[in-house]
Amino acid sequence: MAAFLLRRLVYLLCLVVVSTSVAYLLAATQLRPRARYEGRNPPPPVAVVDARLDELNMNDKVPVLTRYRRWGAGLLRGDLGRTIDNQPVNAEIGRRMWVSLRLVVVGAVVGTLLGVAAGAYGAVKQYQLADRVLTVSSFVILSIPAVVLGVLFKNAGIGLNNALGFKLLYTTGELTPGMDPWSAAGLVNRFAHLVLPSLVLIVIAVAFYGRYQRNAMLDVLGSDFLRTARAKGLRRSQALIKHGLRTALIPMATFFAYEFALLFVGATFTERLFGWHGMGEYFVESVTKNDINSVAGVTLFVGVLVLIAGFLSDLAYAALDPRVRV
């Protein structure tokens, strides 16, 4: 079993390598760091620009494969190169990834748990008021783009603060500047910052998961084994929870990987709207600044994130379904 999980991991790793390479090559050919210098007034001498770009490994006069090789060699040493502002990409990512992970992980974990619970509850109470409310709200939420949802939550937060007369929830940044992040007050302050942007992601994840979980459970509703369970003497709700929910969790494992990618994109919006300096914001800035190394670094990060989620999916699948255990 372990050997084959390992093989699966290697396969996923290959995909990450290929996807990051594609992203690097696309960025290296499509983005134009030179434009940053050409636009200056007066424009710096070409030789100076070339030297500068060479230093950053972003000179478009160097063949792209050469630059890729250089970048790849750096990557193998664990060095992602330097940003267009001549800062190490590693440091930038090291600082920003925790900001994003805080949002994404909280969203994924809380969202998945609540989503499964909501979906199961809806299926058990099929066609009753609670089910209808849950179904309709998840349907509506999934029709609202994350941006709009973010704006709505932000404005609702501001409205709430205004109504209370003091700042209960913060709508910009991760921490009020000047506070000690590790003191008790700092942690509370961080939490007050975290609530709204996380809530946006949680709501999306709950709607996403709840909908699938409900459908997966209703799919097993007509199954023979549920009928067997009832023929044994289990009541409908007992059978549905004990046999239906457990079986319906299996296909959910697959959605886990998708959910992560979905939430990362969602986090990009919430970061922008709530002024968090995370990976999403970094990426948007890098593309705008024609910062090839940073763009490639973010793609690598996302690839690894999806890889981990995919691998966790595989593990969860194997844990949930005895048929795939070897």
Binding site: S223, D224, F225, R227, T228, A229, R230, A231, K232, G233, H243, R246, T247, I250, L320, D321, P322, R323
Partner: peptide
């Protein structure tokens, strides 16, 4: 059900809970 009347179904593959 199951105590005074019990049932045996046709398809034993799908009639047992797989997990």
């Amino acid at each position: 059900r199951g105590s005074r009347i019990a049932m045996v179904f046709q398809d034993p593959l799908s009639a047992l809970t797989p997990v």
